[in-house]
Amino acid sequence: MNRAVPAPRSLSETLKFDARELNSRRTFFQLSDDDLARLKGLRPFAERHMDDVVEDFYRLILSHPEARRFFPDDETIRRVKRLQRDYFLQLFDGVCDLAYVENRLRVGAAHERIGMAPRWYIGAYRHYLAILLDRITADVPDPAEARASYQSMLRLVGFDMSLAIDAYIAANLDTLGRHQAAIRELSTPVIKVHDHILLLPLVGAIDSERAQQIMEAVLLRVIGEKARAIIIDIAGVPVVDTRVADHLLKTTAAVRLVGGKVILTGISAQVARTIVQLGVDISTMYTVAELSEGIELALGLVGKQISTGAT
């Protein structure tokens, strides 16, 4: 998709993940500095098993036909394996600060981008832990020590999982918000037809929510473009009942308040009837049947006129 990319902002910032939140979450996951120190001590163990663990991990994931869909070709698989090795080693860095958090949040956001829902990576994390449990019990002879090591891993992996899910949800909401903004924009396509003259061709049904969006978009554009007049063509609105008519009249009144004028065009006999039945004072309104007349009227209002024929 081709879209203007906003200035980069860290995910921790977007999610308001600050030092206080870091502290609170580590406490909840019982992730202490002792755990981090223990994991750092296991670094040689991690380096020794890194390649095997990652191989095992992908063997399990790729054996599931649906999970496999996320890895279309060998190149992708090679790339994610490389990333996975980095990820795995970071578990044994003995560091859990805001930079670590940012890194983990990016993992969650990346999953949202490829459409991988949380159920997949929660399952993947489980595979991870199962593999680690086998290795640690085989490698560490003292059962108490092995158990403590596994507990530390469990805490950090659980912590990671919570971050990935936070990021996934935030990215999802963000996508939703952008789609809604795009729909809003499409549903109120305000066009500049001339200096100080705007045109809004309305198509489709108008409910209260859309009516409010229309009013807001129209007001912002009228002020932004210093428009003296905006033509609202309602020929494409299938039903203009008293509620829709009332919304249009409110928009007209609001545009008047900011110093512009609304010209309503595309008025059918039925709409005329509805507006009169509302008991509205139409002496102050500009309404015409056809869009072309509306444009002429608007030009007249800003002191211009269309010359007919070559002279």
């Binding site: 002020i223 210093k226 009144a253 609001a254 008047r256 110093g259 512009g260």
Partner: peptide, 21 residues
């Protein structure tokens, strides 16, 4: 814009006053 929208929603369109941008 937001002031105009709010007044109109409240039913107070200030019909007697002339306006300009």
């Amino acid at each position: 814009a937001e002031v105009a929208a709010t007044l109109v929603r409240m039913g107070f369109a200030m019909d007697t006053v002339e306006t300009a941008l």
